[in-house]
Design a protein around this nucleic acid. Structure first.
Lengths: 243, 243
DNA sequence: GTCTATAGGCGGATAGAC
DNA sequence: GTCTATCCGCCTATAGAC
């Protein structure tokens, strides 16, 4: 029995889920920095000390929420990708990027938890990295596929960046040319830069047609990583961005 | 006398500055969401109620810090630009972007205050927008200059984005073609995306040679807004990025 | 696993004396 | 402008009974 004994284990999972759900709800109003075990317990009709049986500390709860958020985003991206798995790589790139933005717009506070400013005094433990890598891995798989089909790839690297690119290939981008690994890393950061600016209010009064703007931006990011534009030369696929 | 009477006014400014300095110090340890008037007062050897003579509320203090941060960043960017005012636009673009990143690395907590996740429950008032716009305006002035010198500009817009581009030109990018206005807005968000990823820890274990990486990224952003590469065709200026 | 109780803090904001 | 005092709230975390 013990950890796996049915009813007990199920109850434990249910309470754990309820705690995380309530914590996510409070994230919306207070933000990660002010997340409070006590307040979660109060709302759940429990007493604060009871929560310590489920999470050893406030930081542990935070870690669980962070992993869940990365996994939810990763799952959303992966399932959107699965639906267009037969399309050409550029189409899949577009779909994944759009799914990432859609998830972020739907869960702005969970997005802020993982891609916003770090929570002061909190250091994300190593266990978060696998989940954190999912979206990047997915986009890399698209690029790898494109590369195998003979995509042009990214422009040449300046010599000082060559070793960095080769290290990236070894570490997380096997099967890709170093130029593409570097270009991808830039595009990856830039993609989240676009989403963060939209979500964090920097586009207020600046960008009004957000969907079309993002679609075009994603197309240009695709150009920048050397994804072929299905016959047309890069930069002239602009017409598909506004769908 | 009253507001302008010498000694009194000076003392008031000094205390105000001391409060903001201490608040900035606390930003590093607690973050904006947990900034506390009481704690600032304690550290200053004052009593909390005394601070209310200087800032009507916690949010007012936060607003002052936000404006100061935008202004400090804007001033850093502008003064870096002033030192290369005679260079070609692409060089100035590079200099400004590098200065923005350098400021962010030097003041990570102030950067997080203005470009990180919004503080829950706080809405930035209208008075912050002028300061917030400074870096963008500076980069736009570089592009305007390049345009006047006959720079190629950005690739054509997809038809659905045309009105957006024209509105941008009217609102904040006078004298530029709509294509460039849109491309600039993307590059602007992407620039801060790169900086945020570096600062917020997403590059941990992913990008090691940060200076060279950023230099190359900024060069490619310059390409994307159609800044000419001083004779060489766009994309082949990669060699200058690692300085 | 949940409870009460407790230790030892913290916060924003206001009233009213000086 | 600064102080004391106050209202009323909040927090993490632990000990020990049941």
């Amino acid at each position: 029995m013990s950890a796996t004994s049915g009813a007990r284990a199920r109850a434990r999972l249910e309470v754990t889920a309820a705690i995380k759900d309530e914590a996510r709800r409070q994230l919306e109003q207070e933000g990660a920095a002010r997340l409070s075990l006590r307040s979660v317990a109060r709302e759940l009709g429990m007493v604060s000390s009871a929560l310590y049986r489920y999470f050893a500390s406030r930081d542990d709860l935070l870690t669980a929420l962070i992993i869940d958020a990365y996994d939810a985003l990763g799952a959303a991206a992966e399932s959107a990708h699965a639906e267009v798995a037969d399309e050409d790589p550029r189409e899949r790139w577009h779909t994944v990027c759009t799914a990432v933005r859609a998830w972020a717009l739907a869960k702005p506070h969970e997005y802020a938890l993982i891609y916003g400013s770090p929570v002061p005094g909190y250091r994300a433990p190593q266990v978060t990295v696998d989940s954190a890598a999912r979206v990047g891995e997915l986009l890399l798989s698209v690029l790898r596929d494109a590369h195998e089909r003979g995509a042009p790839g990214a422009p040449p690297l300046p010599p000082p960046l060559k070793p960095e690119g080769e290290r990236m290939v070894e570490t997380f981008a096997p099967g890709l040319p170093p130029e593409t690994a570097v270009a991808f890393t830039m595009a990856w950061a830039e993609l989240f830069g676009l989403i963060s600016f939209e979500l964090f209010g920097q586009f207020e009064g600046v960008v009004l047609g957000r969907d079309a703007f993002f679609g075009h931006a994603v197309d240009r990011l695709a150009d920048s990583v050397g994804l072929p534009a299905a016959g047309r030369p890069a930069g002239e696929r602009a017409d598909r961005t506004a769908r």
